[in-house]
């Protein structure tokens, strides 16, 4: 008898708990459903309709469905070249941020006077508003009065100022070879690395705190030199963190809009897909094509999110 009463009591407690849980979580769920999930579904429908910004008030659920947008988007040279640009941008941006962030975390691992301040300074590019950061970079790189070109043509003896953000490619001579370098693209990648390496730095620093010193001391007793310590002791312990960070950074860099739009507006060979979506939407007022291109982006993104979730299950710390 006592078991049945406890069971019943337990049942009502868990029912009450379930009710409280749903009540507490539903405002969040409703907002996310209405402003994130439904809009994404709506994008799918818009992508199959011929909708222009000017006749937006006539657009509805039961318009004429068509594949034209996808045909336009997928057969246009622009999409494929911008996908290539986006890929270069994300791979180099992510890789650079990981390498620089890792170096920063290792360099700042051991305490010294003023380390707290240096650590805080490292985070500046990441926390500061992207619009202000992009504007300062644009000014620094300005061919007429930017400090980079002033020093380049002055102290470094460049022949002429380089307009970093509007030059598609420039030839650089190394060892007698002339190599075309995508100037503007590399500049936006440098900006991306500058802005996001602190993110990697933070996570790697946090992970390094958990690396027990005793193993390193033991290895040191066994005669391991610094490079071996890094290769065989520190790096293996950081690898899961680095893997998760790479996927996470890649996802966000792949879809980054602000940085490229603010620096170049997508010109000079820097048109990444997200800037392309924006240009379809605002520049041409072609909602259907903008949606179709956004969906292409979303499809790629979904694959990456699934990869991330797979990693994150193994390594919960960064989630």
């Amino acid at each position: 008898m006592s078991t049945t009463t406890t069971l019943r009591r337990k049942g009502s407690v868990s029912r009450r708990q379930a009710r409280a849980g749903i009540a507490l979580v539903s405002p969040s769920v409703i907002i996310v459903l209405v402003l994130v999930v439904l809009p994404i579904l709506w994008t799918v429908m818009l992508a199959f309709q011929d909708v222009r910004l000017i006749q937006i008030r006539r657009a509805n659920l039961f318009g004429n469905y068509t594949l034209d947008n996808f045909i336009n988007v997928l057969t246009s040279e622009a999409l494929w070249s911008s996908l290539g640009t986006t890929l270069t941008y994300s791979v180099l941006g992510t890789g650079g941020a990981i390498v620089v962030g890792l170096m920063a975390a290792l360099a700042l691992r051991n305490a010294f006077r003023g380390r707290t301040l240096v650590r805080a300074a490292m985070l500046l590019p990441y926390v500061s508003p992207v619009v202000a950061a992009a504007f300062v970079w644009k000014t620094m790189l300005n061919p007429q009065f930017g400090v980079v070109n002033a020093w380049g043509t002055g102290a470094l003896g460049w022949d002429q100022p380089v307009s970093f953000l509007t030059t598609r490619t420039s030839d650089v001579e190394i060892l007698g070879l002339t190599i075309p370098v995508p100037t503007a693209l590399f500049t936006v990648i440098a900006f991306e690395i500058w802005r996001t390496f602190p993110f990697v730095f933070l996570f790697v620093t946090a992970r390094l705190l958990a690396v027990p010193k005793s193993i390193e001391e033991a290895a040191r007793m066994d005669g391991a030199v610094p490079t071996q310590m890094f290769r065989h002791i520190i790096l293996p312990q950081l690898l899961p963190t680095i893997a998760v960070l790479s996927v996470l950074r890649f996802i966000w860099t792949f879809n980054n809009f602000d940085d490229v739009y603010l620096l170049t507006g997508g010109g000079a060979g820097t048109e990444v897909v997200s800037v392309g979506v924006f240009n379809y939407l605002i520049g041409r007022g072609d909602i259907g094509s903008a949606s179709a291109q956004a969906l292409v982006l979303a499809a790629i993104l979904t694959v990456m999110v699934l990869i991330y979730m797979k990693f994150a299950v193994k390594d919960e710390e960064v989630a």
Binding site: F257, V277, L301, V305
Partner: peptide, 14 residues
């Protein structure tokens, strides 16, 4: 994980 550019189109239109 979903980036805001993907929401830009539908929210703008809506």
């Amino acid at each position: 994980l979903f980036p805001s550019i993907l929401l830009a189109v539908p929210l703008f239109v809506f």
